[in-house]
Amino acid sequence: MELQSNSTTDPKNNQPENLSDTERWGSLLTGSALVLTGLSQRSLRGVLLAIAGGGLAYHGAAGQKSLQDTVTEAAGLNQRIRVEKTVTIQNKSPEELYRVWRDFENLPTFMRHLKSVTVLDDRRSHWVANAPLGASVEWDAEIITDQENQLIAWASVAGADVDNSGFVRFQSARADRGTEVKVVIEYSPPGGGLTAAIAKLFGEEPEQQIGDDLSRFKMLMETGEIATTEGQPTGHH
């Protein structure tokens, strides 16, 4: 901290916001930074793409803001929902956990809002999630980065009902204390109007939803099952 305040060339002041954000995001992905909170408003998708080095079908999303983006941002409409959660899992290596997660078809077992995930090929998958009133929302996702046993990053492709992106990182905890699993997921409504719909989709609390998903992943990995009381008897209520 002191070094920075003494410095006359504080990178924060001299560099364009996007670049330093990208660096910080990058260090989060590689594991040298531990906490996301406080990071920029820049979209996760953009950062993931920038780090992957481009070359994917939906370039435009990475860099410059479109006019529509600028307008919705100015109007405060684009409240992206971004969630960051970490758990530590005992007695399982990053490799073992990575392998379970990398088969996206396993995800609905512990991610309760997902109806199904169908793997289409090595990079593409089709996701169906529950929406209120028995409806569902669907999207295709593509893997942006896949670092074996360490990191998987994905984003929905054009035409998604809900634009979203995320990554999961597996990292040995310090001092042999299990494996830390960090998940960051972001839902970005295109025009703002969807924010409410997404909130509904996640029962108002996407943060809690992802947290619960991750707890269930941990239960499954540590105990072989997911603790439940669904189906137990009760008296009249």
Partner: peptide
């Protein structure tokens, strides 16, 4: 509190 007749419990998980 009341003593009620309720369904018997079932096995819900393998353990």
């Amino acid at each position: 509190i009341q003593v009620e007749t309720v369904p018997d419990p079932k096995i819900l998980n393998p353990r």
